[in-house]
């Protein structure tokens, strides 16, 4: 019995040493990581797309962990030319620039058009319908002012540890941005 007790206490002792050295290791780790933290004090990040790097590949529609994707087309009205024939709204070979189905580019009709006054039209994105396929973005960028572009919508985004779209983005357009400035809008209005 005595030897057993001695054995036990010796084991306990060794375990204690192990425990506190591991605790010290974790403390050191925390401090090391903490040192890095002081430089970027209080900065928290969210994912966002840089529209200048976006290649409109269409993967945002399929790669997001959410379905439909948390990436949506966003319209910067300040950059828009309010055209009648819109490169983002209409098929490239459209003859009569109206809202007929055969002329629409958007597969889900998420892009809406509203007449304002001759000859100007306002275009709006219905985010409930938008799937983030970037077709209109490509059209607007190719033929228009580039006022349509993709952005991660933060009311939908789960802000994953590693963004599934970022892992597949060919243009490396995804980057973390500060939570205080969570969008990268064209036309400079946040």
């Amino acid at each position: 019995m005595k030897t057993l007790n001695q054995n036990l206490t010796r084991r306990e002792f060794l375990r204690g040493i192990g425990r506190y050295s591991l605790l010290g290791l974790l403390g050191w780790l925390g401090l090391t990581l903490g040192r890095g933290l002081r430089r970027g004090k209080g900065t928290e990040y969210v994912w966002q797309i840089d529209p200048e790097k976006c290649t409109q590949c269409g993967r945002c529609a399929t790669a997001c962990v959410l379905s439909p994707s948390a990436v949506k087309c966003v319209h910067a009205y300040v950059v828009c030319g309010y055209c009648n024939l819109c490169g983002g709204y209409h098929q490239p070979n459209t003859k009569t620039p109206d809202t007929a189905a055969e002329n629409q580019l958007c597969p889900t009709a998420a892009l809406r058009r509203r007449f304002i006054e001759e000859p100007y039209y306002q275009y709006d994105v219905d985010e409930a319908l938008c799937i983030g396929c970037a077709k209109c973005v490509k059209g607007c960028g190719s033929f228009g002012n580039g006022s349509l572009f993709l952005q991660v919508r933060h009311d939908r985004c789960a802000n994953c540890n590693e963004c599934a779209i970022a892992a597949q983005c060919p243009g490396e357009a995804f980057a973390r941005v500060r939570r205080s400035r969570p969008y990268r809008l064209r036309g400079g209005v946040a």
């Binding site: 409109q56 269409g58 993967r59 529609a61 490239p92 396929c133 190719s142």
Partner: peptide, 15 residues
Amino acid sequence: TGELGGAFRLDVSAL
């Protein structure tokens, strides 16, 4: 592969 289908492709290069 693994992307959206043909109707989703806007092929500007054809033009």
